[in-house]
Amino acid sequence: MIELKNVEKRFGAVHALRGVSFAAHDGAITGVLGPNGAGKTTSLRIAAGLLPPDDGTATVDGTDTSADPLGVRRAIGALPHSHGLYARMTAREHVAYFGRLHGLASDVISARLDHLSEVLEMRDFLDRRTEGFSQGQKLKVAIARVLVHEPKNIILDEPTAGLDVKGTRAMRALVQRLKADGRCVVFSSHVMQEVAALCDEVVVIAAGRVTAQATLEDLKAMTGKEQLEDAFVAAVGTDEGLA
């Protein structure tokens, strides 16, 4: 479970977050929807213990991210928006590297690699260097390495950006699977359809504020709109930056 309470964040003169609060529960997919530049990435970085909040608190399974950032990172698997790979290392080495950084033993790592390469269908390129991988292959490697320590909480920042239809569908299947395992999945996107198709709950962020957190049905009721798309636009306050 990931919880942000009144989180404030400034970068110099930019007031990026103006009191962001939301909760993402275990066994559920929480969508974070908002236009580009609304504060999604910053909120997720704070939730993962990468940035300290200026004010307010962020907790993961009850652990404060500022007090114990390393402990929080053990409980989280986060796929950031920019998830580059090392061109001279193989897919297997990427996953093993992150597994070791989490202090996993070699036999544990190879067992999980087996499992992950099965689930993510990456056997064919597991021992190839990642230079020249397709977007989909790259994303699979990037996801495998954040799941290798079997985190209870998973943050995916715009994971479908740049993917083709096949890749997007595979991604959705994976997210469903993680939910079925009872994990807490936070999924950010600026694509309304994706959020509508996947998420149990949606957090709408606009201009550094949470304008709504509700189930999809409640959101329609709250905004008085029949169509989900209209409900999103109403919650954000504008249709600019959405897709």
Partner: peptide
């Protein structure tokens, strides 16, 4: 530049 910094920093290593 490669975008590997953020994934690396998200590991439990100071």
């Amino acid at each position: 530049e490669r975008g590997t910094l953020e994934p690396l920093l998200l590991n439990p290593v100071s």
